[in-house]
């Protein structure tokens, strides 16, 4: 079964690398990151910018674009093949529908991984070269260090890793849409609407349970990135908890919200599971015409 899914994933990647939209997605994502960094570099300011501030601005832009494209790739994954009629050709091959579905899901994870890695590596490299990563100091009391460069760097790495969770959950939401909606155009349109404002609407209507989805949900992770860049520790307790789990020294006098950390790691996993299981159930029962 695993070998068969592996084979299908390779086929998915074979197709992906021959589609223009993949290069558009990676191009725009890279542009967002590099563009932000370069624009900051060549905008005259009185205070020299801290590397972390630039990095967070740039990667937040990158992640926002990547999230949209991951959602689009997800919502296209089955619907585009239904629209084009190729799904029937693919389904004649000796595979379970679940295997095909898992291969699509894994491919979405890989796309998320590729885009995230691009954003992070390009961001880190450019900022390192143009700014360096110094301590985050108070703008008025220059000798007061909010966060040491080493600590800020470590927290950035934490964010860079866990941001994958919401990105994958968003992609799986798209995959779920693509099992329900046969038309690729409509699937992408609905996904984009969710991305733009339906997500907020759901959040407002059902506040708590859904507040982890879509923009707002992704923001939750990105806020921490912003925190790192200012050294103002609004959400940074999460990283201090991770520090403790990893056996590293933590700042004294911090209240550590363990439940909050568990939730922030678990919620996207729960969403991703929910969307993929529902999507699979729908896909397995579908008539393929």
């Amino acid at each position: 079964m695993l070998k068969r899914i592996y084979r299908l994933v390779k086929v998915e990647l074979f197709k992906l690398l021959r589609q223009r939209i993949f290069y558009i997605a990676t191009g725009l994502t890279v542009l967002a990151v590099a563009g932000t960094i370069l624009a900051d570099k060549y905008t005259p300011t009185d205070n020299p910018l801290n590397g972390f501030t630039v990095l967070s601005k740039a990667t937040i832009n990158g992640f926002a674009i990547a999230a949209l494209f991951i959602l689009i790739f997800g919502s296209l994954s089955l619907s585009s093949e239904t629209t084009a009629g190729v799904l029937k050709m693919v389904l004649i091959a000796p595979y379970r529908r679940s295997e095909l579905f898992f291969a699509k899901a894994i491919t979405i994870k890989l796309i998320a991984l590729i885009l995230t890695a691009l954003i992070e590596l390009i961001g880190l490299a450019l900022v390192w070269y143009l700014y360096g990563f110094g301590d985050i100091v108070d703008p008025t009391f220059k000798d007061y260090v909010h966060l040491s460069g080493a600590e800020a760097f470590r927290y950035t790495v934490y964010t860079f890793i866990i941001v994958l969770l919401p990105l994958v959950a968003i992609g799986f939401f798209g995959l779920f849409l693509s099992t329900l909606i046969e038309s690729a155009g409509i699937a992408v349109a609905i996904a984009t609407l969710f991305y733009l404002f339906l997500g907020y609407l759901v959040v407002t209507l059902f506040s708590q349970p859904s507040s982890f989805l879509f923009n707002y949900y992704l923001d939750w992770y990105l806020i921490t990135l912003r925190d790192i860049s200012t050294g103002v520790l609004g959400e940074i307790w999460r990283f201090r908890v991770l520090d403790e789990w990893l056996g590293l020294e933590t700042a004294k006098g911090q209240t550590l919200d363990y439940a909050g950390v568990v939730k922030s790691l678990l919620v996207p996993v729960v969403w991703a599971t929910l969307f993929s299981v529902t999507g699979l159930v729908v896909f397995k029962r579908k008539d393929v015409i």
Partner: peptide, 25 residues
């Protein structure tokens, strides 16, 4: 072959068949 045949239009004919052969192991 069911009804009107359909393929990945952005791939060559050979690549379309290649995919199906790969899928069949």
């Amino acid at each position: 072959l069911v009804d009107v045949p359909t393929f990945y239009s952005y791939l060559s004919g050979r690549d379309n068949l290649y995919i199906l052969c790969r899928m069949r192991g």
